[in-house]
Design a protein around this nucleic acid. Structure first.
Lengths: 206, 206
DNA sequence: AAAAAGTTAAACCAAATGGTTAAAAAGGAT
DNA sequence: ATCCTTTTTAACCATTTGGTTTAACTTTTT
């Protein structure tokens, strides 16, 4: 499926992928309509099938692109050579910035987990993590040996970091409802969060 | 829409709601088929419309039931009279148990956030929280005044608690993929988590 | 017992949906 | 310019979908 993609403007295939991303992220696989994607791309619907055999194929292409983009966002900070206690603020900073710039991504991935958990599992498994976890593990151990932190399971720690950064974005409507917040209040709370969350984790480790 | 619901066995309306819950939680609103719900309930599809006007009405009924069940699970522990540092282990214990017994609930609520954030916001807003937040706030203040913990914004703390408990369940396929875990390994990790996560939070507060 | 109200089943329906087809148009090679 | 290949278009298609209709059946009320 190598289609001609040169040209001064975006190729048809790219148009399709870009529009499919928008529509799939907004509506999910089941809610998205092929005609809607075609309309959004400004093309004839039959082209969706010409370039991507069927809806599922198109969806998987979008999904793969999405996690290919997501993983580096997670991995770079985790595998940097910095000591652990410097990694943590970096992690939150980079990660939360990524989510703010791509607000639909966590939601999209999470929605797909219910529909097709296997795709998500294999999608994340297939990506080469470049020894991210090993490097993180090492950083944790070194910090323990230096007496900077108490012993901690690196898996649990990563999980805490990811939970504390992603979930508050995902849970936005719940938080608005539960705390009776409007958009501005939610925004303020999230800005405040950026300031305090890494300190929370660092305190937990000492 | 008060339908007769006595009888030795479950009424048709209850059958519908129970089956709708199962199917909507598995497939979401867009993926669920009315015929499938009817088949699951062992009834004729026209009855779905007789008892619940349309698909959306049925979905909202299921959604409301779901959060009516969810809120007490969150609220009781948060509003108990116990001191904060006792509340935290209780919170994780009760909350994680609830999710384990209702594994589809977080996923269901989160999926709906994308499709219909307004419904989620108003759903959570409408529920009477019984001054949960005020009580929690008070517990936090008292703990600070007694010098047990450092000052902390109660909203951020609730958010941390909820993030640390829910997200690892929601993220199951990601974790399996990222850490190359099978079902048994994931299970072990979550059992371990139950043991360490409240200590993590308590350390963070001191 | 008869009438009224409630429930159910099966057939039906219009529109939507993902996909197919064939011809026209566009692009590339000779 | 001609031929071949690729891309695009517009019409078409079979199936699915949420919903409607009507009559039969069941329960409740008079």
């Amino acid at each position: 499926m190598v289609k001609k993609d040169e040209g001064s403007s975006e190729s048809t295939q790219e148009k399709i992928l870009n529009s499919a991303r928008v529509v799939f992220m907004a509506k999910g696989m089941d809610g998205a309509r092929m005609q809607e994607i075609a309309d959004h791309a400004g093309i004839n619907k039959a082209l969706l099938h010409y370039y991507f055999r069927d809806k599922e194929t198109l969806f998987k292409a979008v999904f793969s692109q999405t996690i290919l983009k997501l993983i580096p966002a997670l991995s770079e900070v985790l595998s940097s050579d910095k000591p652990l206690l410097e990694k943590i603020p970096d992690f939150f900073s980079v990660h939360m910035k990524f989510i703010q710039e791509n607000p639909m991504v966590p939601q999209f991935v999470i929605s797909e987990m219910s529909r097709n958990p296997g795709l998500v599992i294999t999608g994340f498994m297939a990506i080469k993590h470049g020894g991210v976890f090993e490097k993180f593990n090492k950083a944790v151990q070194e910090s323990v040996e230096r007496g900077e932190i108490k012993p901690v399971d690196p898996t649990q720690l990563i999980l805490n970091l990811v939970s504390l950064s992603i979930f508050p974005f995902v849970a936005k409507p719940i938080l608005k409802g539960f705390f009776n917040m409007d958009e501005s209040q939610y925004g303020q709370m999230m800005e405040e969060r950026k300031k305090v969350v890494s300190q929370f984790v660092i305190n937990a480790l000492k």
